[in-house]
Amino acid sequence: MQTVTTQTEAIETHTIAVLVDNEAGVLGRVIGLFSGRGYNIESLTVSEVDHHERLSRINIVTTGTPMVIEQIKAQLGRLVPVHRVRDLTSEGPSVQRELALVKVVSTGERRVESLRVADIFRARVVDSTNESFVFEIVGKTGKLDAFIRLMEPLGLIDVSRTGVAAIARGTDSL
């Protein structure tokens, strides 16, 4: 059959927040849903946010046509351990942040230049040897991408990123 994805519709990027019971296998259910139905995961973060109630929050950045995004939300919503699903992209403004640890190995002018770029991006040095820095940078995904691109010719050898944490602006809660 023809699927809806073959229709000519614009591909959109959405950030979806999901509140789940922090129980064994719940992340597997979410990931299995995406792989099993052919949805994309650009970024995924998960962590317990309410220890007393044993609730975890999953933030997923995904891409698809509007119809596919609606499907993703509906499919997430019918997983039994899911409490709430919110589309932070379509339901009002939100704040999105990601943290990266970026290791640069270099000496001389390149080492100095890496520090200068880090300063511009407000990245912090969290580890240092004579030949290396580990920078910590926080910001939107695009800012991190730009920083990492600039570090490439300056001795970049390792990157670790957290993925996107996101939250709605204003007084609303998940």
């Binding site: 059959m1 023809q2 699927t3 809806v4 229709q7 119809m67 609606e70 499907q71 509906a74 499919q75 919503g77 019918r78």
Partner: peptide
């Protein structure tokens, strides 16, 4: 049921009742 969805019920306005929200707008709008 639908065959080729691109040519499915071209002139229809569709009411869809389902207990499963994920079944709505999945294959046909």
């Amino acid at each position: 049921v639908t065959g080729n969805v691109a040519g499915f019920a071209p002139g229809a306005e569709i009411i869809h009742v389902d207990v499963d929200a994920a079944s709505i707008n999945k294959n046909v709008r």
